[in-house]
Amino acid sequence: MKAENCYKWTGPLPTTCIETEPFWEACNQERFLVQKCRDCGEVQYHYRAFCCHCWSDAIEDLPISGAGKVWTFSVVEVNRSPQFAEWGMYVTGVIEIPEGVKVISRILTENPHHLRIGDDVRVAFATAETGQKIPVFVASENSSEDR
């Protein structure tokens, strides 16, 4: 696996809007944001302009620690979508983060068939040709090594 922060992104690029621009700018600074509502105290992800729990607009950015655990995942062995053609076999999954939400992401791992639910992962940022950084999660080198 590559050294941290040296990943190349070859997939589709995000479309940004005024609501999501702060999230993508934070990614370019290698910070992953979720949000916390000042009115109800709930944490949310995906990034948006209002609280999905109480509809308040009193939300604030909450950078995550970067740690997480695989909650579920799928190994994609064949994908006929042209935008994913370069990926070959890859893993997509749901990551449970300590801040209280689950994040859908690509999971980078040396051997997809050794990944297990509960394995430790850490956020990293892959760089697209445009310079935009895309969050991905990387499986811990020590997780599942003996499987």
Score class of each variant (00 low, 15 high):
Glu99Val: 06
Arg48Thr: 14
Ser81Val: 12
Leu108Asn: 06
Pro12Ile: 10
Pro22Asp: 05
Cys27Arg: 06
Asp119Ser: 07
Trp71Gln: 10
Glu86Phe: 00
Gly41Thr: 08
Arg147Ser: 09
Leu115Ala: 06
Cys54Phe: 08
Cys54Asp: 08
Val101Ile: 06
Glu30Arg: 15
Arg48Tyr: 06
Arg147Met: 07
Ser65Trp: 03
Val70Thr: 04
Tyr7Met: 04
Ser105Ala: 15
Val121Lys: 07
Trp71Val: 01
Arg48Ser: 13
Cys27Gly: 04
Leu115Gln: 03
Tyr45Val: 08
Cys37Val: 08
Phe84Asp: 06
Trp9Asp: 02
Val43Trp: 03
Val76Glu: 00
Ala58Ser: 14
Trp24Arg: 07
Asp119Ile: 06
Gly100Tyr: 04
Glu77Gln: 14
Phe84Arg: 14
Glu96Trp: 01
Glu25Val: 12
Glu99Thr: 06
Leu62Ser: 06
Gly68Val: 09
Trp9Ala: 03
Glu4His: 13
Pro135Thr: 02
Asn5Tyr: 13
Met1Cys: 05
Thr20His: 01
Trp55Ala: 10
Ile95Tyr: 05
Gly118Phe: 05
Glu19Gly: 02
Trp71Asn: 11
Phe73Ala: 00
Ser81Asn: 12
Val78Trp: 03
Cys54Asn: 05
Ala49Arg: 14
Glu42Ile: 00
Val136Ser: 09
Arg31Ala: 05
Pro63Thr: 12
Tyr45Phe: 15
Ser65His: 03
